[in-house]
Design a protein around this nucleic acid. Sequence first.
DNA 1: GAAATCCATTGATTATTGTCTATATATACT
DNA 2: AGTATATATAGACAATAATCAATGGATTTC
Lengths: 317, 317
Amino acid sequence: MQTRHLTFRLLQVFVQVVRCGNISLAARQLHLTQPTVSQQLKRLADTLGEPLLSHDNGKLTLTPVGEALYELCQDTLGQFDSFGQFLEDYRSGLRGQFSLALVNTAQYILPRIIGPFQAKYPNIEVRLQIGNRQQVLDYFEHQADDLYVFSHPPSSASSRAARIINNPLVIIAPKQHPLSLAKELSFEQLSAERFLLREPGSATRMLFDSWLLNQDFLLSSSLQMASNEAICVGVASGLGLAVVSRHVLAGFLNEVTILPVSGFELHSHWHYVRRTGHQLPMAAQRFVNFTQDNLQHCLDPRWLAKDLPMLTQKLLG
Amino acid sequence: MQTRHLTFRLLQVFVQVVRCGNISLAARQLHLTQPTVSQQLKRLADTLGEPLLSHDNGKLTLTPVGEALYELCQDTLGQFDSFGQFLEDYRSGLRGQFSLALVNTAQYILPRIIGPFQAKYPNIEVRLQIGNRQQVLDYFEHQADDLYVFSHPPSSASSRAARIINNPLVIIAPKQHPLSLAKELSFEQLSAERFLLREPGSATRMLFDSWLLNQDFLLSSSLQMASNEAICVGVASGLGLAVVSRHVLAGFLNEVTILPVSGFELHSHWHYVRRTGHQLPMAAQRFVNFTQDNLQHCLDPRWLAKDLPMLTQKLLG
DNA sequence: GAAATCCATTGATTATTGTCTATATATACT
DNA sequence: AGTATATATAGACAATAATCAATGGATTTC
């Protein structure tokens, strides 16, 4: 058998003929002429080297080989049909996968939209990458992922970004800290305190550093910790103060207090970022759309970034 | 997806490329040039409407769609390879089926060769038709079967026949019958007896009738029964005498006796018969070969027909 | 930075497939 | 015999598939 000369068309015609039990009828249903179908059958039988049909007392019947081939064809064509369906879904974004790279802090809030998304699109696989700003930047450079979430988008001409969620930074102190009772504070009042800081390269750290520089402040004492959780626990345990994203606090609000420091206004935003060179999978586009339409129901409205209603337009349009 | 434009060749090339992870190498292994393979891939991707491969940092990698297609191709091509193997076997006669039509009497002896044949060729399905001579003649006329076993082959120009087994007819009487003690008898001595006869159209009946006619004998009394077993039981029960194939007697030899009637010599033979117009399946040819080579080990040598050693030659050659 | 690989593209050629019309041949049904 | 109906065959043509050689761009390797 010369498998390489087999055509799906041939199999389709064969199956149709078997189903009709009648070459002429099959031809009509396939919008072909009868001789065409006859010849296709002949060619098929020739490439297999065995007859597939025989006419016994006027009726077309399958030879044993034909029988076996018919079974096989049904199976194969069925599988390819399913594959076609899979492709449809894939193309329309109902099925598929995409990867999303998050900077550390975003992991506290993005699941709130990913969860409902997964519920609506169970056939889409979201692969989540999480790292600090530098790592996600690396992913971004290598185009390793489809969509990125940054607090501070890289300034690349070949990328587009749109704000989605407000990310205010706050200064926290342990509940029992003397300053936690103050109605208003200036930053000078804190300058003697020890600060727990994220590693350089993290967006939180960068923002805070540049703010300090800008205000001409210098920290008298600091301690570096590589995780937001560690910092919160540290603050709660009285190790010092810290600047963290407001969103990180959820689980710690009964142990730490937000200090009302006047003049400390570090408002950043999380952005969806994509590379323009990289074709976004439909599944990812669905995710962007879904975010625009549903984020308001997943989040306290005060966190919604202003340009959320124009998200798809800014990012994809 | 335009399934109808898919080619097995395309799938083969794709699979090879995925296995090699390298287009040029795949091309060499397929004895093609690299551009050819590149183009095949392009065409495949075009008919599916989705890219299948991408080069990430120098390496070819499958897209999710490519991954799915690869799985599918492996499966499909594997199945067709198996089918090819099936075809091979079928063609060579190691696998397949054929039908064998037997006249009634032959069913007592043909299983002795069919059994060992099945043991050696478990993948060959033998379909057995059994009928009286007239019925098997009908099958023969309609070419319903591949091989026939007759006592008296139809005299058709479009058939070939070869003797395989001796089929002597004998006259039997109940053990307690007065004649059963005689050393030698003439047929006249039996003419007053009642004879149990098969139906007209059966070979045994035909032979006996024509012998009677030839010898100018007339039976005084007869009783017709449509089965050999019924006749044997009848004789054993004292209903009368009968003429039956020697081979039918196996289970009755302690109840009936063969009468030594001088001048009664009805030697017929079973034949394998095939129609020359009908292409014999390889499986059936295997059976003929097997018969020639093994019948001697399955049967008492006295029943072997003289021209058994030339069986295949006479029937197929 | 030169050489070596690897891949994509282009343009051209040939072989194979898909398809038709017209005709012949069976077979079954009056 | 005569008329449908179903298949097969032959001859012709267009479309598609399969292939190559030549070339250029990218990436890796030395």
